[in-house]
Design a protein around this nucleic acid. Structure first.
Lengths: 333, 333
DNA sequence: CGCAAAAATGTAAGCGTGTACATTGTTGCA
DNA sequence: TGCAACAATGTACACGCTTACATTTTTGCG
């Protein structure tokens, strides 16, 4: 299994009869090189399988083209589907994603500290499980790009933020119009910012009808927790409407309702969040709140092309509703 | 948004009143340093937030602690769930995963070539979409670790390979015992090695009963393709048993059957592959073939701890059956 | 106490590239 | 032809660390 190591720019330079500086210029599209020699060098490089060493490269211009992606877990479709798009955007720009999976990892700080030694250019915070302050503290010289929901309060960052005010109101209006009165919210993690945010949207939308809702705080964003908690609360509280912190829990709740002999939509309407593709499957058909397709990844990728010296920016993305059968008949247009 | 850069080992050395070599030794657990000075250096480093630069580090010992993970897409639970475990194993060993998502990427070679410039120590081929030869060719000096199903034929590699002979036979025996006779296999991608392998297992298991099966080759591993193709073939071929290339397609097929008014298990048994968690949900309950939990990731992680000079190894993992309601009553153990 | 061996640290030369600066080759124009 | 301006390339050092080798300090023991 021993394999030969590639050659270096000096060796290639010797082969090409030029200096290593010329090699470097050929590969960095330096305009000061004669197009003709550039071609010659690149051809020779291809022939010998030479590619400049990214480590050496980034050592002296301190741009690594690495992007740290901080997520909870890749096993959860809600994160994975967004992540997949984002990774594609990065790859289009020849940026390399370094993946940090923080779920089940007691010491996220340690994980981030290791990643930071690779001199990543950017950090995308895609997870609520990591605090912005920690990330800022650890990734000193990288630009931080936030897609979690932690309030930023003036800390200078690139920031993509969701707004589901309208979408939530749309759903609430529809459900209230159907005569439903008893709303319960099954939360994901009590400490999660996005969860608090979502509850606030629901509170606001219900307040316009002079209504409120109950909160059950035992979920953890998994199907299993949705199933288990819904089985308990459906019996105990008998709500009209069960709003879940995410689609996976909503599907779990739907299955639990079926187990209890309740008819989804007729007996209890179920609402999810995130719009993962499987919530749209025939067997689930959950009404859910989601950002327009790909827009978050696009925004993140756009931020990444800015330089660390740029002014902090924020983008607000308006969410929409994807109606499913879990809330009964669809609203007319 | 301008932030200060961290200090270097020479600067820290000055502060500690030692040489930069001592700093280096403190951080690489060199036994030749006095424990007492090591503590002092580490304390000072922590105080000043110093961490050795991984780029510079790997530049001269040519070990980057980076692992390239070549997958199709992270959006598919079948890959994502395995990947998640693997990433955790890597993180335990303080290895950093570089993620390459090859699906929808016309030039996988280019992607891998870029990754190779980062001097990755290992490459895990988790995808059938990339040929082993290409990977070998591009990642010259990294150890290649294969979890795809391409036959290796003596090419020296670390290799994790699935064996579902027994599991497949178990399912086939059960289904034949129920009196089913008409088997159809809905394939994922015609060119996919794992798919061919799975069909072979089924062919062998059926051959023991003197039976054979039909093949429909239009799937692409997605729920949608399972749904669409099953809707067509269930009407056309009216099989007893529909075996799908993976669980997502099996779930699609199940939904299509429901749409056609067919009762799953009674009218048509459905079998999946991979054992993704959602195939075990109440609403799906697909009988599926899967490797024991975590064993593949564990094997991969174990291989990764070997050195490039080690002898090539192979591990064969025996798959098992997870019974669901999609194949009727469970077999008495 | 003295001296050899061992332990601890320092010195300096890379690792493979980018880049400021120096050098050489070329062109234009009087 | 001569000389300025510019285009193309070369030279040499820096990036931040590891490590072979040199040097200093400590230890053990007769």
């Amino acid at each position: 299994m021993i394999r030969r190591k590639g050659l270096t720019s000096v060796e290639l330079a010797k082969l090409a009869g030029v200096s290593s500086a010329t090699i470097s210029r050929a590969f960095s599209n330096d305009p000061r090189i004669k197009p003709e020699t550039r071609e010659r060098v690149l051809a020779l490089a291809a022939e010998h399988g030479f590619r400049p060493n990214a480590m050496a490269r980034s050592l002296n211009n301190s741009r690594s083209r690495l992007v740290a992606l901080v997520v909870n877990t890749v096993a959860n479709p809600a994160e994975a589907e967004g992540l997949d798009l984002l990774i594609h955007r990065l790859q289009e720009r020849e940026l390399m994603p370094l993946l940090l999976c923080c779920a089940n990892h007691e010491d996220r700080g340690h994980l981030m500290r290791i990643a930071s030694t690779y001199q990543v250019d950017h950090v995308v915070l895609y997870s609520d499980a990591v605090s912005v302050d920690d990330a800022l503290d650890i990734f000193r010289s990288a630009t931080l790009i936030v897609a979690s929901s932690e309030p930023l309060e003036g800390r200078a960052l690139f920031d993509v933020r969701l707004d589901a005010t309208a979408a939530t109101a749309q759903i609430v209006d529809h459900l209230v119009g159907q005569g439903r009165r008893h709303f319960v919210y099954l939360s994901g993690r009590a400490s999660s910012h996005i969860d608090k945010q979502r509850m606030r949207w629901f509170a606001d939308a219900l307040a316009r009808h002079g209504m409120a809702f109950e909160i059950v705080e035992h979920g953890d964003y998994s199907y299993e927790s949705g199933y288990k908690e819904a089985a308990l609360l459906l019996r105990r509280l008998r709500p009209d409407v069960l709003v879940c912190a995410n689609d996976l829990m909503a599907i779990g709740a739907k299955d639990a309702a079926a187990l209890l002999g309740l008819k989804v939509a007729d007996d209890v309407a179920i609402v999810g969040h995130d719009g993962v593709s499987l919530s749209n499957w025939d067997s689930h058909s959950i009404t859910t709140i989601l950002p327009p397709a790909g827009i978050v990844s696009d925004a993140l990728a756009q931020f990444i092309s800015l330089t660390p010296a740029s002014e902090p920016q924020q983008r607000v993305v308006d969410c929409m509703v994807r109606w499913g059968r879990s809330t009964g008949e669809f609203p007319r247009h």
